[in-house]
Design a protein around this nucleic acid. Sequence first.
RNA 1: GCGCUCUUAGCUCAGCUGGAUAGAGCAUCUGCCUUCUAAGCAGAGGGUCGCAGGUUCGAAUCCUGCAGAGCGCGCCA
Length: 550
Amino acid sequence: MLQKIKSELFSCIQEIYPKIEFSNNDIEVSCLYDEKGDFTSNLCLKYSKLLKEKPSDIAKNIIDIFKLNEITKIELAGPGFLNFFITDLAVMDLLNEEPSSFNDTSSVNIEFVSANPTGPLHLAHGRGAVVGDVLSNIYKYFGHKVTREYYVNNTGNQIKEFVSSVLFKISEKYKLNLNYSQHYKGDYIQTIADNCYDQFNNSIQFNNINEEDEINLANFAIKSLVEESIKTLKQTGIKFDQISYETDIMDKDLLTEIINKLSDKKLIYRGQLEMPKDYQGTKKENEITIFKSTFFEDDEDRAVTKNDGSPTYFANDVAYHVDKHKRGFDKLINIWGADHLGYLKRLSAALCALYPSINFSVVFCQIVNLKRDNKIQKLSKREGNIFELKLLVEEIGIENFRYFMCYRKNDTHMDLDIDLIKKENKENPIYYIQYSYARAQSVLDRKKNIIDASIDMPLELKNLYKKLFDWDSVVLAAYQRQEVHLIAHYLESLASYFHSLWSSAKANSQIKFLDNNDNISSHSYNLLKKYQDTLNQGLKILGIKPKLKM
RNA sequence: GCGCUCUUAGCUCAGCUGGAUAGAGCAUCUGCCUUCUAAGCAGAGGGUCGCAGGUUCGAAUCCUGCAGAGCGCGCCA
């Protein structure tokens, strides 16, 4: 229907203004949901300058010659909108429209969560986890081959500090007087320390630990933390296809190749970088390897190796993304927290320098504040003051968790009000949507025969038809803009039209789904089926199961 | 100091890349169950879209400046 209106508008324009170059794609037509009409177009307003006429004159010219069987009336409205009214038959026929044939089977790698293995998953990981999972589902919906990937930074200073913190706890508990300092606080460190002690009590002399022992301890602790994280995510319906470890990538020695390649392009040099003003450590005098990322409009050049010659986090990360690229994906997407905002330029710069054609993008998730007792809770991992994801999901439930984590636009700050979600769990959007599904199901359960009947088309019914028709454009928008919240909002709005129709039947029994003999008209039956089908598609993308009964 | 994300109703947030009277949920108030599920519906009140300029037929949306919030700015990860 949209296409029909668009192409008829296009031929009208061509007929009236034959000399002006105009493309079919310039025409926008969208649904209306009130008495103003069924569809609307703003093209007279938008192109009045190009066509060198007043919007209202263009509209009048179009109205004069516009012809389409399904259209009963066209109105010039407001400052120059064209509003279209379609026949009831055409409204019902909206359900039979082919969904957009958009299909792209190229392969996509979506990397998300990728939490540092120094503690359990917490609230902040939750948003990225759900957004990444839902985005993956959207890509799948449009035919892509999707790989969900989880990256583990299992080397570097943070791991040393982590092991040190564990050994500090062991030393404290068993009064060993070891020389380790505490970097990470929090009860979970004690738990890990206990597990490590139990595991290695026989094989390691804790009074005389060597480097190899530390590595073994680290590997054991990391392994159990990663396993625990993956398990927690699995319990919320998030499964990964691939887990990659930084050390495994390092073993492939991609870095030599990368540095050579960048050197050939004169983007690598040896030198020194200024330390930040508040840097506390000892001043480094050695020359290091530096990537000229300012060439790609980064704020400063970036270190590739550290003073001791070992690769920086950045260098390994470039190698990791090169590795992903080499595995043959057509597109790489990363879901990052807002604390990595400043990191995008340098990674893009490196990837762009190495593989100019690479299709790499990042979706950012802003901070989630936890609100409890009407107060924002200050959470800090280093201070050991965290809210474990597992406990959050247990407290509010998987459905609430998934729904609320993608309810808000990913790049806006968000307050998660625990008390509100719990207190109003019967009134929150996800129950509202589920309830509409169950209502539809109750009619289907009760119906006897499917019969032919005439149709009455009040506004509430018409709106539901149009809203269902709109699903196609919403899911496409969510895909193109990489914005998962559009799905959640659409479902809520769709359910609202359903409930509205349902209730209006109280005043007008003509539009009840079932007649007095519990028979259902074929168009009502089709509508309910389509309603459930559309909710199913949306809920499937959100990873939420519909309820048949409530 | 620089960069990024923001500022919309009492609260939490939408606003589809410039369009019609700025929307929804929660909270407050008023109606609606002898008829398919009231976990629902209908309605009311509540707004200078942070402030000030600019761009044009038209700005919450685009540009500039200012104020405020958050995040980031290491040879940490």
